[in-house]
Structure formats: structure tokens, C-alpha cells
Simulated assay, not measured.
Amino acid sequence: MRRSAPTQRPADDDLMTDSPHSHPPLLAARGLAFSRNDEPVFGPLDFAVDAGEALLVQGGNGAGKTTLLRVLAGLLRADAGEIDIGGHPAGPTRRSRAIAYLGHLPALKADLDALENLDFLCGLHGRRARQIPGNALAIVGLAGYEDTLARQLSAGQKKRLSLARLWLSPAPLWLLDEPYANLDLEGINLVNRMISAHLREGGAALVTTHGAYAAPPVQTRMLVLGGDRDA
């Protein structure tokens, strides 16, 4: 494995090579800020989330919760600040390996059935060890819907299918934007169980919420955003 000289920052496509005795945060942001049309949306922010930990991002409509997750995922460019993953700069390749993003839209192909959607996404992003799409559907309560087209699913079922895709992802860092939306109490408990299991395996999660739902029952830090602009 190629190693950078001590005075250089590792290239984006290098593998993480931290020794087992060093524990940098899985995700760290310093001075992170974003503006839209010269109006600040959030920042500057400094925060970190460790392996085995969740960061709960709270704030009302327009506080910048969705925008923050999109910046962390690399879908928007920050105006200022730095983002590190595992102690290294968060470039596109490192983000693609480390981050699984669950946004407001289900990110499904409407004319593929549930199982085909998961097979397609596993082909793009890889698959968690010892997990297969059929089992993931059962975990999220969609056993028996393998052959149902995504466009025929209800909003809650589409959210569950997106959760199955999330569960199959090998990425250690989950960015979850309002993951409880369109779910009943059973679905909310499902999300909490999934987050708990992911953290027990050494993963981490950032979870946005308006504060209407209880935080997952895991080790949690809090980041509160404020504002009255659309996120």
C-alpha cells in the first residue's frame, strides 16, 4: 500500500491507515458554513461523530438540516470549512466508500420491483457482509413484496424499501434526513433498531429531526441549528 510522506495529507483514494491505537472521529467538521444567494444558511459549525455514536441534528423548518447533510454527502459545496472522514480529507472517493445517504426522496427506480431495486443498488455501492437483498426486505417488513414495482408501493413502503437499501450498504457513516417521516410507530421502532445495530457494529449516524420524535436509544450528541429559511 502506498503511504504518503509524513508532511503530506493522504490522497483521497488512499485507504484509511490509522493504527488501531488511534481513534479519529469517523466524521469531523471544522468551520463548516454554507450560504444561498449570499444569505447564510448555517455555520460556521464545528462538530464530530465517533464510531458507535449518533449525532442528532435538530432545528425547525429552514434551519438548514437537509442542506447540512447534502454538504456532508458532497451534493453541495460548502462556502467554508473542512470535512474529514476517519481523519482524512473527505473527497469524492472517500465519501462514496464511507457514506450512505437517506434523503427525503426514496431514490428508487419506479419501474423496477423491490428486489430488482436492491440488486441494482448493491451493484452500484456494494453490499454489507453476510446480508442479501431478500433478507433485508424481510427485516424492514416487506417480505412478500419482492415482485412489486416500486411505483406501486405506498409512501411508507417506499421508505421501508429505502431503509432496506440503507441496511445493505457497507458504508460506516449513515446520513439520515428525517428518517421517521411516513412511518408508523412500528416503522419508527424499526429505524431505531437499525441505527442501534449499525452503531454496535462500529458505524455512526447523523439523524435530522424537527424534534417531534424521540432520539434513537443510543449514545447521542446533539447539534441544534436555527433559522427561518427553507432548508
Results as ranks from 00 to 15, higher is better:
residue 94 R to L: 14
residue 101 Y to F: 15
residue 147 D to Q: 11
residue 14 D to M: 14
residue 43 G to D: 05
residue 178 E to A: 11
residue 72 L to P: 08
residue 110 A to W: 05
residue 227 G to Y: 09
residue 181 A to G: 12
residue 62 G to E: 06
residue 70 R to H: 09
residue 182 N to T: 12
residue 225 L to S: 10
residue 192 N to I: 09
residue 112 L to M: 15
residue 185 L to Q: 11
residue 165 R to V: 02
residue 58 Q to S: 15
residue 3 R to W: 09
residue 200 R to Q: 14
residue 222 M to Q: 11
residue 4 S to W: 04
residue 121 L to K: 10
residue 150 A to W: 01
residue 194 M to Y: 04
residue 215 A to Q: 02
residue 64 G to S: 12
residue 224 V to W: 00
residue 186 E to G: 09
residue 1 M to E: 12
residue 63 A to I: 10
residue 228 D to W: 08
residue 172 P to I: 06
residue 166 L to F: 03
residue 141 G to K: 04
residue 51 A to E: 04
residue 50 D to L: 08
residue 138 A to E: 14
residue 225 L to M: 10
residue 85 I to K: 02
residue 154 S to P: 02
residue 190 L to C: 08
residue 153 L to P: 01
residue 77 R to K: 13
residue 76 L to C: 12
residue 37 N to S: 15
residue 151 R to W: 13
residue 13 D to T: 13
residue 212 A to P: 03
residue 102 L to H: 00
residue 24 P to R: 07
residue 62 G to R: 01
residue 94 R to E: 05
residue 141 G to N: 02
residue 46 D to T: 10
residue 177 D to V: 00
residue 11 A to I: 04
residue 87 G to I: 06
residue 201 E to K: 11
residue 73 A to I: 10
residue 28 A to L: 09
residue 230 D to A: 15
residue 17 T to N: 10
residue 197 A to Y: 01
residue 60 G to V: 08
residue 35 S to R: 12
residue 157 Q to I: 03
residue 81 G to S: 05
residue 202 G to P: 05
residue 54 A to F: 04
residue 82 E to T: 07
residue 226 G to M: 05
residue 208 T to Y: 04
residue 63 A to F: 06
residue 85 I to D: 06
residue 190 L to Y: 05
residue 86 G to T: 14
residue 107 A to W: 05
residue 61 N to P: 13
residue 104 H to E: 13
residue 196 S to Y: 00
residue 35 S to D: 12
residue 217 P to W: 08
residue 163 L to Y: 00
residue 115 L to Q: 13
residue 118 L to Q: 02
residue 50 D to F: 09
residue 200 R to V: 13
residue 14 D to S: 13
residue 127 R to K: 08
residue 163 L to C: 08
residue 207 V to D: 03
residue 21 H to W: 10
residue 118 L to G: 07
residue 143 A to W: 01
residue 145 Y to F: 12
residue 31 G to W: 03
residue 125 H to Q: 10
residue 102 L to D: 07
residue 197 A to L: 10
residue 198 H to K: 09
residue 106 P to N: 15
residue 146 E to M: 07
residue 7 T to I: 08
residue 200 R to T: 15
residue 66 T to R: 04
residue 138 A to S: 15
residue 116 E to R: 13
residue 5 A to W: 00
residue 178 E to S: 05
residue 128 R to P: 01
residue 219 Q to L: 14
residue 7 T to Q: 10
residue 52 G to P: 06
residue 134 G to S: 12
residue 78 A to T: 02
residue 101 Y to L: 15
residue 210 H to W: 03
residue 17 T to M: 07
residue 20 P to Q: 01
residue 11 A to M: 11
residue 74 G to L: 09
